[in-house]
Simulated scan of single mutants.
Amino acid sequence: MSPADRADLTALARNGSAAHRLARRANALVLLDSGWSCEKVALALLLDDDTIRRWHGLFVAGGIEGLTRFEAGGSACQINGEEQEKLKSWVAATLPGSTRQIGAWMEKEFGHVYAGRSGLIALLHRLGLEYHKPEVIPRRLDEEKQKAFMASYDKLLNSLADDEAVLFADAVHPTHAVRPAGCWAPSQEKLAIEQTSGRQRINIHGAVDLETGQTRMIEVETVDAASTIRLLEAIEALYPMLAIIHVFLDNARYHHAKIVAEWLAQPQRRIKLHFIPPYCPHLNPIERLWGVMHKHVTYNKSYATCTQFADAMLGFLREKVPRNWPRFRDSITDNFRVISPKDFRVVT
């Protein structure tokens, strides 16, 4: 048995949603491949050894698809090589969203009704087809600008003096609302989470130091040029002994505002701004911090009031992140990569 066949059969045997008869056959074949005799497998599955031999014969003759044929009401049918190629071409062209859609097309096109979702999934895997979730990428991406930014960033880090620091800044606008997320629980329990009554939003303008995990997070009524200056002042206060503080941020209009430029031009200022290329949030690690924040603060958590929600959010960003930075640092990194549309098949 090939490693691919064994992996598919093991997945079928472990799949709680697979048809019971098909899962038992997959289980039997995996045990046979592990060196068990037909008699031993039959004894373990409370069957007779002739049944196990017959299942083995179905597999030898037709692969995993052969196991999906059942004598009683067996409407599943193994498709031939020409039909397989036609199925692969259709899937590649149309990108169907479900096995139900694929099964319906096969029934209409070939007149075959596949017995069980698990058997159909096994067929698709054997044909080199997998279930994909498209990655969302910005519409306008400049590969050369990304490479230039990464080179400039590496050069800065390699020449950074002891009296300098690097931070990444951004704004986030979490809404006071429940975010249900999947979780493990006892099978007999039916889970629910109470929805909040309001849709209030809080505005946070913040920055993070990837070296130490220190953060500066301010809650503001509006994210604008004034809040940018407030944030930069808070950053300077965080590092009173440093000569230069490099702050990386995006190209939001308020970051380029005249009053921000005038503030930076003051003689005593120690902030130096660096701008991330347009449409490249993947080059700002604080975006990853926002994802970690939601995972720990909003997923499956309900806050009765927006004040409680804001306290939990700001408490996590201001206290828990710096205090537990060794735990979070692997998820909030400057391990940058260039994203090129040429590396993807862009779905339209």
Score class of each variant (00 low, 15 high):
residue 267 P to Q: 04
residue 286 I to G: 02
residue 300 N to C: 09
residue 232 L to H: 11
residue 270 R to I: 02
residue 281 P to I: 05
residue 276 I to Y: 12
residue 295 K to C: 04
residue 269 R to G: 04
residue 260 V to F: 03
residue 282 H to P: 04
residue 271 I to A: 06
residue 277 P to V: 11
residue 263 W to H: 10
residue 257 A to P: 05
residue 254 Y to E: 00
residue 240 P to Y: 07
residue 240 P to F: 08
residue 245 I to D: 05
residue 292 V to L: 13
residue 241 M to L: 05
residue 249 L to H: 09
residue 305 T to G: 11
residue 277 P to M: 10
residue 243 A to C: 11
residue 267 P to A: 06
residue 229 I to C: 04
residue 286 I to K: 06
residue 301 K to F: 02
residue 250 D to S: 02
residue 228 T to P: 03
residue 298 T to M: 13
residue 300 N to T: 11
residue 251 N to K: 07
residue 255 H to Y: 13
residue 228 T to Q: 14
residue 283 L to N: 05
residue 268 Q to N: 09
residue 240 P to N: 12
residue 288 R to Q: 14
residue 289 L to C: 11
residue 293 M to P: 00
residue 254 Y to T: 03
residue 292 V to D: 01
residue 265 A to I: 03
residue 246 H to S: 07
residue 277 P to L: 06
residue 275 F to W: 14
residue 285 P to E: 14
residue 289 L to E: 05
residue 250 D to N: 09
residue 265 A to F: 01
residue 270 R to Y: 02
residue 237 A to R: 15
residue 246 H to F: 12
residue 276 I to E: 08
residue 288 R to S: 14
residue 281 P to R: 07
residue 282 H to T: 01
residue 304 A to T: 10
residue 237 A to M: 09
residue 278 P to L: 05
residue 248 F to W: 13
residue 266 Q to K: 15
residue 296 H to E: 11
residue 274 H to Q: 08
residue 279 Y to M: 07
residue 237 A to Q: 15
residue 305 T to M: 07
residue 260 V to K: 09
residue 307 T to H: 04
residue 246 H to E: 06
residue 277 P to R: 10
residue 292 V to K: 12
residue 266 Q to L: 13
residue 261 A to Q: 15
residue 273 L to H: 09
residue 275 F to Y: 15
residue 284 N to G: 07
residue 256 H to R: 14
residue 307 T to F: 01
residue 254 Y to C: 06
residue 240 P to M: 09
residue 303 Y to M: 04
residue 254 Y to S: 04
residue 252 A to I: 01
residue 244 I to K: 15
residue 290 W to C: 02
residue 275 F to K: 08
residue 293 M to R: 03
residue 271 I to K: 11
residue 254 Y to K: 01
residue 269 R to D: 02
residue 303 Y to D: 01
residue 283 L to T: 03
residue 302 S to I: 01
residue 299 Y to S: 09
residue 282 H to F: 14
residue 255 H to Q: 15
residue 267 P to L: 00
residue 243 A to E: 15
residue 276 I to S: 09
residue 278 P to W: 01
residue 250 D to P: 02
residue 251 N to S: 11
residue 269 R to N: 15
residue 298 T to F: 10
residue 288 R to W: 06
residue 229 I to L: 05
residue 228 T to N: 13
residue 272 K to E: 11
residue 290 W to F: 12
residue 229 I to T: 08
residue 304 A to R: 11
residue 281 P to M: 05
residue 254 Y to V: 01
residue 245 I to M: 04
residue 262 E to S: 10
residue 251 N to G: 14
residue 281 P to Y: 07
residue 288 R to F: 03
residue 293 M to D: 00
